[in-house]
Design a binder for these strands. Sequence first.
RNA 1: GAGCCAUUAGCUCAGUCGGUAGAGCACCGGACUUUUAAUCCGGGCGUCCGGGGUUCGAAUCCCCGAUGGCUCACCA
Length: 499
Amino acid sequence: MNDRDQIINNNNQPDELSEHIKVRLDKLTSMLKDNKNPWGLRYEKTHDNLDVITRFEQLEGSEVSLAGRIMAIRGHGKATFVDLVDRSGKIQLHVKADLLGEERYHEFSTYDLGDIIGIKGTVFKTKRGEVTVQVKECTFLTKALRPLPDKFHGLKDIDMRYRQRYVDLMVSPEVRDTFIKRTKIIKAIRNYLDNLGYLEVETPVMHTLAGGAAAKPFVTHHNALDMTLYLRIALELHLKRLIVGGFEKVYEMSRVFRNEGISTRHNPEFTMIELYEAYSDIDGMMELTENMVASVANEVLGTKKISYQGQEIDLTPPWTRISMLEAIKKYANLDLSGDLSDAEALKLAKEHHLEIEPSWTYGHVVNGFFEKYCEEKLIQPTFVYGHPLAISPLAKKDEKDPRFTQRFELFIVGREHANAFSELNDPIDQKQRFLDQLKEREAGNEEAHVMDEDFITALEYGMPPTGGLGIGIDRLVMLLTDQPSIRDVILFPHMRPKE
RNA sequence: GAGCCAUUAGCUCAGUCGGUAGAGCACCGGACUUUUAAUCCGGGCGUCCGGGGUUCGAAUCCCCGAUGGCUCACCA
């Protein structure tokens, strides 16, 4: 039995399909019976819809060939108006029986919302002034068996928007725009770094050790080698090996995976860029960050002043710089700069009702105060620098105060957007830091870093002083496209399977 | 993982005090050759998220479950 017979047969059987689908299957069946192809062939377009509209003066009266999806039909007996939507947008078609012929016009009248057609016709303007194509020829390209959502309200059901993004994209131009902007932002970043002489590289996604960040990895298994592998949680350690190798300026913009909770700011797989520049440092990374983000905003949005969920954000460099201790002084009215013992720090944390982990030391307490009292206050772009050593096992120590590191995090609208440091290039210190992390791990911190012996070996060959930076691309896209949830900037966000 | 809220026609939503299901769009039939959320006439759509319970009677009240949203937790 071939496909055609199968469809005709199936359609003869009563089933539980909705009226809409039955009607469309009936139309499909009659097309097949009439030897009309409902699944179309290659079609030659001469223009995108938007071209015809923007270049109307030149194109008026001439013939164009367009293709797209039927999104609205306004019938008037022997003539019909149709909205045809392609990647560039909507254009109106006018189809007349006397121009197309009675038979072809009747056939046209059986087309449904959602069907995909190609047309040839001449460009004109209606009485009301809308650029329209008078259809002379129409080619059926693809049958839609399911009805479209409400043409006026569109698709509102958030669950369905994420699960069936194709429907969302079909009916929501603003969703399409967001994802087009996402691509432009990513291209602008690549462009910016390429122009500075950075080399884009690819490093392994499957790791034998999940290092470079404090996070739980996804675990998988290689059958032939019979070994456990982890999906990467960061790009860091491989990229720094490439700095040892002599590339000097490298970046990778790609997916990382963290086995953690899901929220409006967290998707299990997300896109990060990490870049490393030999002979630079934390200050170089600050300058690069503010200049790059401002430049990308300007290129994609045409402005450095943006609005995020009603808040005005000014991305014009230079951005505010404040140390973590100063921030705590400012927002929590607490001076933690003195020589506090771990016990004293913990006592203070308890007094302020911080949730404490058993493995915590002075440095963790400082970070705890910062997270509780400061993060949400940092609305305008702010570099917070001087992170405690205990939470920064890959960063160089602050030469003046070895309890802290040459590290910054960037906060905008109260959220972390970037993380950077002068990279630790002392293999002996690095080994000790990993050992300290292992102790934390034993104390119950599942997210503590793991020991990476080969990375130590790489450092033993000598890594130049280096500045490194990581930016969460999804969060940056959220910021620049004014989207409230990370799911609004990821085409297919992770969802629990239904049922 | 916890709390709160939501789930009704293809889509967007209403549904009173517990009395047996509604609108707009879409769809079906008809009219209509410059409309544009086209208009006009006619038509009926349904596992009220799923399962159990209370009740003479449940979309509505109670319990369990599913999925989603928000907040919190987790997450540098």
